[in-house]
Amino acid sequence: MAKQGVDPDELTQPFWDAANEQRLVIQNCVDCDRLQHPPSNTCRDCDDGGALEWKQVSGRGTIYNYGVVHDCPVRLLQEDQPFNLAVIMLDDDPGIQMYSHLPGVPVDDVPVGAAVEVIFEPSANGQLVPEWRVIDG
């Protein structure tokens, strides 16, 4: 599915740069050693807003949940309706979620709980975007 392009901003530049190198990085608080996603300018758990770093993660996870989108507000995706939209929980920290269209998985036939691994797909302006595919077997 062709996604809109991405214009990285100051906050997310490291995330998108890593994606272009086919690496998945997630913000991590140096003080409380806790991942957070989506990214933010400060740690959401430290009262004094702990220092943040970008930490490479394994790129493995499980399908936590999904819905089937039949009426999408994003114009570019409307021609692909209906499509799966799943939430992936990272193996590195099952509290951290990422979205996926689950390429290759039939619509509304999503194996909740299945293992997945990250892949990177080009968006409309060439920026690579993390996606997830089911690991066979």
């Binding site: 809109q4 214009d7 999408c72 507000p73 994003v74 114009r75 975007v129």
Partner: peptide
């Protein structure tokens, strides 16, 4: 933004996948 060719990096992390409001 939903009709645009590209999204800024921060909203892109949550909005690229096109979930509607009730998702």
């Amino acid at each position: 933004a939903n009709a645009g060719a590209a999204l800024p990096g921060t909203p892109a992390i949550t909005q690229l996948w096109g979930g509607p409001a009730s998702y």
